[in-house]
């Protein structure tokens, strides 16, 4: 299976949690090309998680719309899957059962589930833990299980809400690299929300900055770097500096 991803278009998205409450974000417009890795950077509280929940169909927007190749996202679907800060695995299931649960929901045949689960577990490098209790795994391994649980559905778009922020630096670095390369090889659009500029530079093709209250998309920066990226690379450093400066300007402008 090799696809090329979908065109994501977010149009005039506005959200408030209650009719009299504050506007979480206002008139957000975003486009993302098929197969692109898009990073959304912003301070905490600017509405990034809310935006991702709406993009996943888990929350309804107040106005505006999200389309994937002209199909509107209106409810949750295995075609657009979200990953959270914490893995939220099902602790009564072993690794392979966690990974296969979505296929079970979709009434796949037993052997089809086994085949896809096995393949996906291999993809995230957890073969030797397939039968393990998820509670025996490290934080990074658990997040890999959560990743596999999403990937097994072969989604068109994977939404990541600061998924590595609870991990140590080494684990984070290897996951950042693996998630990007897996998404590229499977032709999945990635939208990753982060407050880490480093993460954006290491993972994204393009980064947008969200700032203000209500939040708005302020700036957009192309991250044109080769696939092999390390934090020490001068090219990486250069874009990082640029992003840092833009971020600082965007966020001070509103205060």
């Amino acid at each position: 299976m090799s696809r090329s991803g979908v065109q994501i278009s977010v149009q005039d998205l506005t959200h408030r949690y209650s009719s009299r409450g504050p506007v979480t974000f206002d008139q957000v417009n975003l486009e993302s090309k098929p197969g692109e890795v898009l990073a959304i950077i912003g301070r905490s509280g600017c509405g990034k998680s809310t935006l991702l929940h709406i993009m996943a169909g888990l929350l309804a927007p107040t106005s505006g719309s999200i389309r994937l190749n002209n199909i509107e996202v209106k409810e949750p679907s295995p075609k657009w899957v979200m990953m959270f800060q914490a893995p939220h695995l099902f602790p009564w299931m072993q690794v392979s059962q966690n990974v296969g649960i979505g296929l079970k929901f979709a009434n796949f045949a037993e052997d089809k589930i086994r085949e896809r689960v096995e393949k996906t577990i291999k993809l995230v490098d957890l073969e030797e833990f397939a039968e393990s209790n998820v509670q025996d795994l490290s934080g990074g391994q658990q997040q890999r299980v959560a990743l596999a649980r999403s990937l097994v559905m072969e989604p068109e778009m994977l939404l990541l809400d600061e998924p590595f922020s609870a991990l140590d630096a080494f684990t984070r670095a290897s996951l950042q690299k693996d998630v990007r390369s897996i998404a590229k090889s499977m032709g999945i659009n990635l939208v990753i929300v982060t407050h880490s500029i480093d993460e954006a530079v290491l993972m994204a093709d393009r980064a947008v900055i969200m700032a203000g209250s209500p939040g708005k998309i302020k700036e957009e920066i192309m991250v044109e770097l080769p696939e092999e990226r390390t934090a020490q690379d001068p090219e990486v450093q250069k874009i990082r500096g640029h992003l840092m400066e833009t971020f600082r300007q965007a966020s001070t402008a509103t205060h």
Partner: peptide, 19 residues
């Protein structure tokens, strides 16, 4: 969050109860 994850993966109301 288990409910969120399950809905996200396409679980029906019955799936959520049972699984």
């Amino acid at each position: 969050a288990w409910f969120k994850v399950a809905r996200n993966l396409g679980a029906s109301w019955w799936d959520i109860l049972k699984e």
